[in-house]
Simulated scan of single mutants.
Amino acid sequence: MKAFIVPARGGLDRLTLTDLPDPGAPGAGEIRVAIHATSLNYHDLLVANGAIPTEDGRIPMADGAGVVEAVGEGVTAFRVGDHVVSCFFPQWQDGLPHDEAGSFARTPGDGAHGFAAEYVVRPADHFTLAPTGWRHEESATLTTSGLTAWRALVVEGQLKAGDTVLALGTGGVSITALQIAKSMGARVIITSSSDEKLARARALGADEVINYRTEPEWGRVAFQLAGGHGVEQVIEVGGPNTMAQSIQAVRIGGQIAQIGVLTGVEGTIPTAALMGKQARIQGLIVGNRRQQQQYVSAMNQTGLRPVIDKVFPFEALPEAFRYQESGEHFGKICVAW
């Protein structure tokens, strides 16, 4: 079968499309899935370019969507022909985070082989059903960025109608957060350095937009746009260089969902300002399988579909990563075959 592999030192120029042995028939408790799509996340890029070291010959990509081709003995949750999507933390099935919930040892495309391959055989509980009627590339956006937005807003943030959400940027998580929040009756403020992208965000329902290049004090502006009392939730994808503004934007008693490190992995936090806001910074990484099932159910009910910027063919995975690096995308980048 065809698959991409990442060398131990990484590098987009060293991603190799190769032939690997077919994984064969599923054993007891397993399913065989023909993978048809994956989507790109920042974590995948870090593995591919070598910023996150991994085992030599690792098959990358955390997100995988496809069709069940065979089921092993004892599998009752899936049938041949079902459309399925992978789980980011297959070891975290339900409940609160535990010791393994933050470990990447079994995360596809990191500590374990991922989904840049034509076929996989995995335990059945490493997957959930995909939303009804979604194309494979749409389903592939669900595993990482989609579930992250869902958990941040709904599971941890307890989003309710009338709340105001501030989403930073126009990548996959933030655009999904915009869609979810609007479907639940919330107001959304979104930021970008591109007026063109902000116009697209408005077309998707954003109530207010802020260009952070022309308005460097965007946290203060967001606070005022939220009725002069701040936003209930911030989808914080930047990290240390944006946190101070996010704290400025949040209301007293609000929540900042720390889900990204686009500006670095450590920095200074204005702790006095955070204390004054009595706000909560909730660090989170994706979610568990039960939360993914709940998210799929919500998508089936609302009829929402993910925003996909561009779909690349399988053999163009390195080019897809370079497009991701450019920062030109709006929403998700996918690879389908």
Rank of each mutant, 00 (worst) to 15 (best):
D163L: 11
T141Y: 00
E138A: 00
L153G: 04
E156Y: 12
G162V: 12
G146K: 00
T141Q: 01
A161D: 14
L147E: 04
G146I: 02
V155L: 10
G146T: 00
L153C: 00
L159G: 05
A161G: 14
A152D: 06
T143Y: 02
K160A: 15
R151P: 10
E156A: 15
K160I: 14
S139C: 03
L142P: 01
G162N: 08
V154N: 11
L147K: 00
V155R: 11
G157T: 06
K160L: 13
E156T: 14
Q158A: 15
E156R: 15
T144A: 14
G157K: 07
D163T: 11
L153S: 04
W150T: 07
T144G: 09
G157H: 01
W134R: 02
A152M: 07
L147F: 06
A140Y: 03
D163Q: 13
S145T: 15
V155D: 13
T143D: 03
H136W: 13
T164H: 08
L153F: 02
G157V: 04
W134Y: 10
E137T: 10
T141S: 03
V155E: 12
G157R: 06
S145C: 15
V154M: 10
L147G: 07
E156I: 14
G157P: 07
A161P: 12
D163H: 12
Q158C: 15
G162I: 10
G157S: 11
S139E: 05
G146E: 00
A149C: 10
L153Y: 03
R135M: 11
L147V: 11
W134N: 04
G146N: 04
S145N: 14
T148P: 06
T143Q: 01
L142W: 01
R135F: 12
A149Y: 04
Q158P: 13
E138Q: 05
A152I: 06
T148Y: 07
L142H: 05
R135A: 13
A140H: 04
L159C: 08
T148I: 07
A140I: 01
L159D: 08
G146C: 06
L147P: 02
L159Q: 07
E137F: 08
G162K: 00
T148D: 05
T164S: 12
L142Q: 02
A152P: 07
T141A: 06
A152N: 05
T164P: 09
